[in-house]
Amino acid sequence: MGNHTTTAVPAPGVFLKDELEERGWSQRDLAYVLGCPEQAVNMIISGKRGISPEMAKALGKAFDVPAEFFVNLQTAHDLSKASDPDPGVECRAMLQRHFPIREMIKRGWLEDTDSEMLSVQVARFFKVEKLDQVPHLRYAAKKTHYDETPPVQLAWLFRVRQVAESITVPAYSERKLREAVEQLRRLIAAPEETRQVARLLGECGVRFVIVESLPSAKIDGVCLWLDKQSPVIGMSMSRDRIDNFWFVLRHEIEHVLQKHGQKTECLDVELSEDGAANANEPDDERIANTAAADFCVPTAPMNDFIARVRPFFSEQRVVLFAQRMNVHPGLVVGQIQRRTNNHAFLKRYQVKVRQFVVPAATVDGFGQVAPVNL
């Protein structure tokens, strides 16, 4: 049995005994009133038996009080006798209330251990000394920009950073990255060529990490810097389509080229892949969106094609236009789908590329756990 911290509450029988003395009744008298054996009354008064809901109703009628009075007496007594719960219950509940702790354990980001060690792990995961310094768990500590990032997205972001720290690459070169963009553009017509992305980025000094998204996170990618010379591109690949992959990748590359995300990570959620301007969009996102859209399908020819062909987007015209642009038809199809709001149009061309990207990249998720130590 565990320790008891609740003040002991007398058994309901103590109240019954006092009440009988007050009324001048014997136990046999009460048994007669209740219409039950005298032994049943004796066992309640001696504390050997609790008060059942049925007995509570009967006693309520006998003493002219609500039945809940006796129910509450019994409940208070039972609670005072109950063992204290595992102290970890409160801690685990607090952590799970704010972060997807169970999912993080399932994914191998944290070990399933006692609450004290779990608290230490969570603090290390978020790179703070104490649990009460973790974003969203703070009480009186100063807030940071992380407090405005939903917890499930924040957990994903920190996992990307952890995995990236385990990768060794040459010194970052902006010149090489710009040259790599041209190389990548020549690969865009063949889905299987996506396997070269991790290598090309690594040769430029860019750490490329794929971390499977957490449920409901809706993250596409992130650009962050371990320091001012160490850029990281993280992707979730939650939308496994060739057009989404190339758009998100080029979007994050532009963030790196523009040195976005050095102070605050550029966390991209549900990116719009047509490069359409949004009045509320920050300048860095507008710049990255424009570069990504033009990379996937050059904007001017795409606009011209839409204007000439709409509403008769035949498969033959789409394929011929894609060949002329030296892109996979899936990229053109994606543009048409979004501009016409017809997401079923030639959907078979939006082929999956995760199968090619993952084997050649540093990956956490999709059945793999990156070797990261807390």
Rank of each mutant, 00 (worst) to 15 (best):
N3C: 10
H4P: 06
A8N: 14
P12C: 06
V14G: 05
E22V: 12
E22R: 15
R23T: 07
D29I: 08
D29C: 06
A31N: 04
C36I: 13
P37R: 04
A40V: 04
M43I: 12
M43N: 15
G47D: 04
K48D: 09
R49G: 00
G50S: 09
S52W: 02
A62K: 01
A67M: 01
F70C: 05
H77C: 05
S80H: 05
K81G: 10
S83C: 08
E90K: 12
R92S: 05
R92Q: 06
L95M: 10
H98A: 15
K106D: 14
K106A: 14
L110N: 06
D112E: 13
D114K: 03
S115W: 11
E116G: 12
D132N: 14
Q133C: 11
P135K: 04
A141I: 11
K142Y: 13
Q153G: 02
Q153N: 02
A155Q: 01
V160G: 09
V163M: 06
V169P: 03
A171H: 02
E174C: 10
V181Y: 11
R185T: 12
R186T: 15
L187V: 07
A189D: 09
P191W: 05
T194Y: 01
R195D: 10
R195Y: 06
L200W: 06
R207I: 03
S213I: 09
S216C: 07
V222D: 02
C223W: 01
L226H: 03
Q229L: 12
P231L: 01
V232F: 03
S238A: 15
S238D: 15
D240R: 05
D243F: 00
V248Q: 00
V248P: 03
E252L: 00
E254D: 09
L257N: 04
Q258T: 13
K259N: 12
E265D: 14
L271N: 03
L271T: 07
S272H: 14
G275K: 08
A276S: 15
A276D: 15
N280D: 15
E281A: 09
D284N: 14
I287P: 06
D294A: 08
D294W: 07
T299S: 12
N303C: 10
D304V: 13
F312S: 14
F312Y: 14
Q316W: 10
R324C: 10
G330K: 04
R338G: 15
T340R: 05
R348N: 07
V351D: 00
V351L: 04
V353L: 01
V353N: 03
Q368W: 09
L374V: 13
